[in-house]
C-alpha cells in the first residue's frame, strides 16, 4: 500500500489563542485504509481534519495529499476536492431545497460540467441508497438519511479521502450502523481512504489503525489491538476501555481463569467456550 496522505511536523495555533491546538503532529495514512481518530474533547481532532483539507493552514510543517501541498495556493482547491469532510450536525450542512440541488451546488463549486454533474449525482445517490429521495427537501429526512446525503455530496466530488468528523454521533444506533455500512462499502469497493473521527470505541476497534490525540499531540498510532490493550494510555487520553476488555477483567476478578483481555464480544465468547469445554 502506498501513502496517500502525509502530515509532516505540523503545528497550529488559532490566531486569538496563546496555546497551540496542534503540536508537532506527524503521521501518514495508507491508500485504502480505515483510520480512526480518537481522543479527549479539545485534543485537536477537528483541527487536524480542517488542516487535512486545507480549511486551515499549518503555522509550521506541511500537509501533503497525493503529492499536493495545502500550502501551495494553486493546489488547495484540488485538495479540497480530493479530501471530503462530513461533519457532525446533519442539520447545518444543507444549502439546496432538494437533495439533487444540494449535491449539484457542491459540484458547481468545483466547476463540474452539467452532463457530468447529472451522471455523478445519479451514481452517488445510488451508492448510498438514496435514489428515491432526489426531489425531497433535505430537512425532512431522518438524521441517518441526512448523513447519507451528505456522504453522497462528497462522493460526487470523486474524492480520494473521506473524513467523517463525528458524522454519526447524533444518530440513533440504527442510523449509525447504516451510515457506517455505507462508508465501509465505499472503502472496500472503491478503495476510498477513510479517516473517521469518533468517540465510539466499538467503531475504532473495527478499523485498520487508530490514532489517539492527547492535548494537541499524537499520543499513539497503531493497530486497535495494541492501542486498546494499553489501559494506561487509554485512560490517560480520556478514553475508556471497550466493553469486552472490561468484562474480561471483571471475569478474572471473579475467578474465571482467562489468560488475557479480549477486545470483542465474539473473541471473548470463544475464549470462554474453550475454557469451558476444556474443563
Amino acid at each position: 500500500m502506498s501513502e496517500i496522505l502525509k502530515v509532516n511536523d505540523v503545528s497550529f495555533k488559532y490566531p486569538a489563542e496563546t496555546e497551540l491546538a496542534l503540536k508537532n503532529v506527524t503521521l501518514s495514512c495508507m491508500k485504502g485504509e480505515w483510520l480512526s481518530v480518537t481522543g479527549h474533547n479539545g485534543s485537536g481532532k477537528s483541527t487536524l481534519a480542517k488542516l487535512l483539507n486545507g480549511l486551515l493552514l499549518p503555522d509550521s510543517g506541511n500537509v501533503e495529499v497525493e503529492g499536493l501541498f495545502t500550502t501551495n495556493m494553486d493546489e488547495l482547491w484540488e485538495i479540497r476536492r480530493r479530501v471530503g469532510v462530513v461533519f457532525q450536525n446533519p442539520d447545518n450542512q444543507f444549502v439546496g431545497t432538494s437533495v439533487r440541488d444540494d449535491i449539484a451546488f457542491g459540484l458547481e463549486n468545483f466547476g463540474v460540467p452539467r452532463d457530468e454533474m447529472i451522471r455523478r449525482i445519479d451514481e452517488s445517490v445510488k451508492h448510498v441508497g438514496m435514489e428515491q429521495y432526489l426531489d425531497q427537501e433535505p430537512h425532512l429526512l431522518s438524521g441517518g438519511q441526512k448523513q447519507r446525503v451528505a456522504i453522497a455530496g462528497i462522493l460526487a466530488q470523486a474524492p480520494s479521502i473521506i473524513i467523517l468528523d463525528e458524522a454519526t454521533s447524533m444518530l440513533d444506533p440504527m442510523g449509525r450502523k447504516e451510515v457506517l455500512e455505507t462508508v465501509r462499502t465505499l472503502n472496500k469497493e472503491k478503495g476510498i481512504t477513510v479517516i473517521s473521527i469518533t468517540h465510539d470505541l466499538e467503531e475504532a476497534l473495527h478499523s485498520d489503525r487508530v490514532l489517539v490525540m492527547n492535548k494537541g499531540r499524537v499520543s499513539a498510532l497503531g493497530a486497535p489491538s495494541d492501542i486498546f490493550s494499553n489501559t494506561s494510555l487509554i485512560l490517560d487520553a480520556g478514553l475508556d476501555t471497550p466493553f469486552s476488555v472490561k468484562l474480561s477483567q471483571k471475569l478474572r476478578e471473579e475467578g474465571v481463569p482467562l489468560t488475557r483481555d479480549y477486545l470483542t464480544q465474539e473473541e471473548l465468547v470463544k475464549a470462554l467456550w474453550t475454557l469451558k469445554s476444556g474443563s
Binding site: 471475569l251 471473579e254 475467578g255 469451558k276
Partner: peptide, 25 residues
C-alpha cells in the same frame, strides 16, 4: 454458544461477570 441461561437484575458489567462466573464455581 453454550446453552447456559442467566437473568440479570442489574445491567452492569460487574453483575454480568458475577452471573457468568457462577458457571465456573
Amino acid at each position: 454458544a453454550s446453552g447456559e441461561r442467566h437473568e440479570l437484575s442489574e445491567f452492569t458489567v460487574a453483575s454480568l461477570a458475577k452471573a457468568l462466573a457462577s458457571e465456573w464455581k
